[in-house]
């Protein structure tokens, strides 16, 4: 899908998680927003990510918000299921409300003071791509910036979460939230990059051919890609290999942010991502300005 979606600002927050789930309070104390009362950890992560993205503190009231998440409100859903099945009790109203899958987007809109169109979307590890494709549509419908973000969390028992996700025991987990101010930034705004294309290809050969045709200068393979199927030295362009943020479903947003940081004007990046349970490759092509 050809997008031609400009990016005006980006930023985010991520952290690795080992045995203990770290509190977010020290980081939250440093940002300008207070998480809404009764909101959960996923919303807190979203706010930490937003605080690192320039311009999110002064958005037009009608700014649309697109929130992409692989696992969405996992901690709250786990809590509700434990209340139900371990303790045979009716879930507390707050736990249930926070398990509803658009509650995070609601809290983020409310905190930012915006009330444009709001949508939460999911496509496992390729959720960011789904949101970017929607933003590519919406930019033709509204003369406003579009806030595109990701968020995924580690629930309270990291070891259990590895079993849930089918990750090997030695996997280092991560969590985080990244945001991209896209769309129409107004006459004074200068895009720092443009997402030209976002789509899926069936095979390694098709991926190589496509990258060749797009004349990419750099590429990033996200952690989910089988490097035996797509060896680095078989691909056109220079590989970028940012340090791993730890594994989480929307970690490709971290890789995109890292790529945008390290590219120089005129570079063209191909971000190659993939979903678990799928052999296809998801490609995003981004020009740095």
């Amino acid at each position: 899908m050809i997008l031609d979606l400009p990016i005006y600002a980006f930023g985010g927050f991520s952290q690795r998680v080992t045995d203990q789930l770290p509190t977010l309070k020290p980081q939250l104390d440093k940002i300008g927003w207070r998480p809404p009362r009764r909101s959960d950890r996923l919303t807190q992560l979203g706010l930490l990510g937003l605080s690192a993205c320039a311009g999110t503190d002064k958005l037009p009231k009608d700014t649309p918000l697109l929130l992409a998440s692989g696992e969405a409100n996992l901690s709250s859903t786990i809590l509700v299921n434990e209340q139900l099945y371990r303790h045979a009790s009716i879930p507390s109203p707050i736990s249930f409300i926070n398990s509803v899958n658009n509650s995070t987007a609601f809290y983020l809109n409310q905190t930012l003071g915006i009330s444009g169109r709001s949508l939460s979307v999911s496509r496992d590890e390729c959720s960011l791509e789904a949101a970017m494709q929607i933003a590519g549509l919406w930019q033709h419908e509204v003369s406003l910036p579009i806030l595109v973000g990701t968020v995924d969390e580690v629930p309270v028992e990291p070891g259990q979460h590895k079993r849930r996700m089918g990750y090997p025991a030695e996997t280092i987990l991560g969590e985080g939230s990244f945001w991209f101010l896209c769309g129409q930034g107004g006459s004074a705004a200068v895009p720092i990059a443009t997402i030209r294309y976002c789509g899926t290809l069936e095979s390694a050969e098709a991926t190589r051919d496509f990258m060749q045709s797009q004349d990419v200068s750099h590429f990033i393979l996200t952690a989910g890609i089988d490097r035996q199927r797509l060896p680095l030295d078989s691909l056109p362009g220079s590989p970028l290999e940012p340090a791993s943020p730890g594994r989480f479903s929307t970690q490709n947003a971290y890789y995109l942010a890292q790529g945008l940081e390290s590219l120089t004007r005129g570079d063209r990046l191909c971000l190659i991502n993939g979903k678990r349970r799928s052999s296809r490759f998801s490609l995003a092509v981004i020009d740095k300005h």
Binding site: G70, E71, L119, V121, S122, R123, C126, S249, S278
Partner: peptide
């Protein structure tokens, strides 16, 4: 079983639809 994509992926496989699904989560 996490995520919202398992059922739409299944529909894609069952009916030979190759496009990527959009799973909308707005209650």
């Amino acid at each position: 079983h996490t995520g919202s994509c398992r059922l739409s992926d299944w529909v894609g496989r069952r009916f030979s639809i190759v496009s990527d699904p959009f799973n909308i989560n707005t209650a």
